[in-house]
Design a protein around this nucleic acid. Structure first.
Lengths: 242, 242
DNA sequence: CGCGGCATTGAAATTACTCAAGGGGAGTGG
DNA sequence: CCACTCCCCTTGAGTAATTTCAATGCCGCG
């Protein structure tokens, strides 16, 4: 089939890909595996030299503390890499777990090194994708350190909207999002109870509604300004909406 | 001179470097620049295609929010890269600023790509260094999300100790650290006042003393357990102390 | 029908912040 | 050498944000 993969879609927001480069990407898409909810894709503390490209469904990447607390580091959507950071480590520093049932493309370290060394432009594009992942990580860190609960929640949904729109899964009005308030809490460094109260506040303020798995932006401009959302760190070629 | 650079020292904690590979690293050390406190090395929002290797002194990498708040993302010590993430971005997503007067080695994107493509083992070592930077970022994020002030401060000083020990700047008893409580606050997502109270608490509990720019571990084991510090994510070949 | 997971709400407790004041040391200019 | 300022550290008291504990409702599923 000719449909471009989510990864190709995402990379196109950075650079144009030639026919040939697009083919190299699709050639990576060989070993397709399925994981169901509850089945770890990558496990913290285990030696696991495989990375993946998420093809469909959502996953989350997290760390568990000794006392059992969990911090979700990032949610992964189609086109994102899973476990890429740990391929050089003796032991993986984090876990990846499906949030919905997922399909993921397993990539052996050699595959990616080969693809990269034969296709310089693709190498740069993949480095860019890794840099962008890190930039989002940094922005997440900034949010945890310096934004209050409401700004954090607002910022989270705005960023997710941009990411989804790059792979065709969101529009300017909103998008589907199957995350529970417990998952949001673990990602945003809050309790589920407080996430709930915060969502109510945002809804009552006419900024954002998240209900029945559907995110709708009630006033996009005001939300952006409230959350101090500056999408510069996502480094897209063009504005996402408007 | 024959003294290995801090970068070489750090990479050796991951892999052995041959004479030749070490030479390639030292060959990078050409354009040495000095920056004084207050003089930005990299500026958020500006186009700046240069990255650096920090040769001496300390720096910090931070983001400023629209409302003026600052979050320090990481402190940089000798051997660390500065601004590496933004070289592919149209616009830098963060700033880097010296904490003390520093010396930094400017590296043009091409230098590093060339070094990497001629020396595969070095390429892997540098990728490892980038992965480790990201792992530390993630651990920092986890701390902001899930650790309270005291654990955060304790964890911070433990990690810094490990990093410094890899470049020969710390021992198991402690190390020199010229950071102010205001800088700590901006890094740890706290206020300076609260950092102060927290330091007092740690001191009174016999865990850690930070005074006159000197960090001393009063009871390393208990501190590690208190902070839930598991150095696995730093992926060193051997234990750091003991 | 009963159970489990998720969402919602209230009240009390805790953590961290804000505001305010004072102290010490290093540098500077008179 | 002293006075002054600036920056940083320290402490107290009141306030705000978030968590904890507890209880209830809803819904899908076996």
């Amino acid at each position: 089939m000719n449909m471009p993969s989510a990864l190709a879609l995402k990379l196109r927001s950075f650079t144009d890909l030639s026919e040939e480069e697009a083919l190299v990407i699709e050639a990576l898409h060989k070993r397709r595996r399925r994981f169901v909810v509850g089945q770890d894709v990558v496990s913290q503390g285990l030696c696991d030299q495989n990375a993946y490209i998420l093809a469909s469904g959502w996953a989350c990447c997290y760390k568990i503390l000794e006392d059992g607390q969990r911090q979700i580091v990032d949610f992964k959507i189609p086109g994102d890499f899973l476990g890429l950071r740990s391929i050089l480590f003796k032991v993986s520093d984090h876990s990846v777990e499906p949030v919905t049932d997922i399909e993921a493309i397993q990539i052996a370290p050699n595959d990616i090194i080969e693809a990269v060394s034969n296709t310089p432009k693709l190498a740069v594009a993949i480095l860019w994708a890794m840099s962008r992942d890190e930039a989002m990580l940094v922005e997440h860190l900034v949010g945890l350190g310096r934004r209050d609960a409401a700004q954090r929640v607002a910022h989270f949904f705005l960023e997710l909207g941009v990411r989804l729109s790059l792979v065709g899964l969101a529009s300017k009005d909103g998008y589907f999002c199957g995350l529970t308030q417990y998952l949001l809490a673990d990602a945003l460094g809050l309790t589920a109870v407080h996430v709930n109260r915060t969502l109510r506040q945002l809804r009552e303020d006419g900024l954002l509604t998240f209900r029945d798995g559907l995110v709708s932006f009630d006033n996009y401009q005001r939300l952006v300004s409230f959350a101090q959302f500056d999408a510069g760190y996502m480094d897209a070629k063009e504005p996402f909406f408007d």
